[in-house]
């Protein structure tokens, strides 16, 4: 059974703006699911509805088998949310605000757990500091600590690494990996596509309030991924010989590179034929490399196609 099951979910704001349109999505227990989409695509709205911050217009959402409306206590107890904006109680201490979150989610005090969370997020030595005195990156970690304070089974990370430096970002991903290893399901939205590429098991792409696709990351890359073979020539070419027209080659780097684009889905990639034809044409090369289109390129092409 999926841990989150979204059926025919729509959200129409009073202004008439349709922020979500008939979204259907199942999220499996224990996976890292990355939700990608341009600004205003509906990512945050989707998360807000699941977490109880926004109302829905149509459809249903089940979390852990519990309806988010009729059985909201059971549903919400499972969820930890790290919102995109840094909303904090500036004058509270780190310890107090994280303990507050645990209480809010109906869990009795457990200083040992709070200590572990703060240590994991390198916040332990700041536990008695007022939040207002912390840096942006630390505040972000306080938000994560709050979300983890009540030992959630599902963690939502809405743009968790926006405005966070590279080192801290890596630290955060270590925490996320550890959480996943302990069985926590993680749903994240991000603009950093390399992050989704590195972290996620599955990717969902949302644009204009519609979920365009959900796919295992590897399958998506394979399905949509194009590979390019670049041949670095010994002697530059002025033009591509006519006998190579069938391969649709491109000439780059002032005629020194010959680029062949092929589809990994095909049974035959055509590389052997290309090599034979190059040999026949007397074109020699000193080096070659292949590259695969990144998730970012796939994403951009998908969203453009949709728009």
């Amino acid at each position: 059974m999926p841990i989150i099951s979204i059926k025919n979910l729509s959200k129409v704001y009073p202004s008439g703006l349709r922020a979500l349109n008939n979204v259907n999505l199942d999220i499996e227990s224990g996976e890292i699911f990355a939700l990608l989409g341009p600004n205003g695509a509906g990512k945050t709205t989707l998360i807000s509805i699941i977490c109880g911050i926004a109302t829905r217009s149509e459809g249903s959402v089940m979390v852990g088998g519990h309806d988010i409306d009729s059985d909201y206590r059971a549903a919400r107890s499972l969820i930890g949310l790290v919102p995109q904006e840094l909303h904090t109680d500036a004058f509270e201490t780190v310890w107090a605000t994280v303990s507050f979150s645990r209480g809010l989610f109906g869990k009795r005090k457990n200083p040992a757990h709070i200590e572990k969370v703060l240590r994991d997020l390198s916040l332990w030595d700041k536990k008695d500091s007022q939040i207002v005195t912390l840096s942006g990156g630390m505040k972000r970690r306080v938000m994560i600590a709050k979300a983890l304070s009540h030992e959630p089974k599902i963690l939502f990370l809405d743009e968790p690494t926006a405005g966070v430096d590279v080192e801290l970002r890596k630290g955060m991903w270590d925490v996320v990996r550890e959480l996943r290893a302990s069985g926590v399901t993680i749903i994240l939205t991000t603009h950093y596509i390399e992050e989704a590429e590195e972290m996620a098991d599955r990717v969902g792409v949302i644009a204009n309030g519609e979920l365009i696709l959900t796919e295992h990351k590897a399958a998506l890359m394979q399905k949509l991924g194009k590979k390019q073979l670049t041949l670095h020539l010994q002697k530059p070419l002025d033009a591509i010989p006519a006998q190579l027209d069938a391969h649709h080659l491109e000439l780059k780097a002032d005629g020194r590179d010959l680029v062949y684009t092929y589809d990994t889905r095909g049974e035959r990639t055509g590389i052997t034929a290309l090599m034979n034809d190059l040999n026949a044409a007397g074109i020699r090369f000193k080096d070659l490399n292949t590259s695969q289109s990144s998730l970012e390129e796939i994403f951009v092409s998908l969203v453009h196609r949709e728009v």
Partner: peptide
């Protein structure tokens, strides 16, 4: 956000 998303 935290109050609204809590099981209260």
């Amino acid at each position: 956000y935290e109050i609204l998303s809590a099981p209260i």
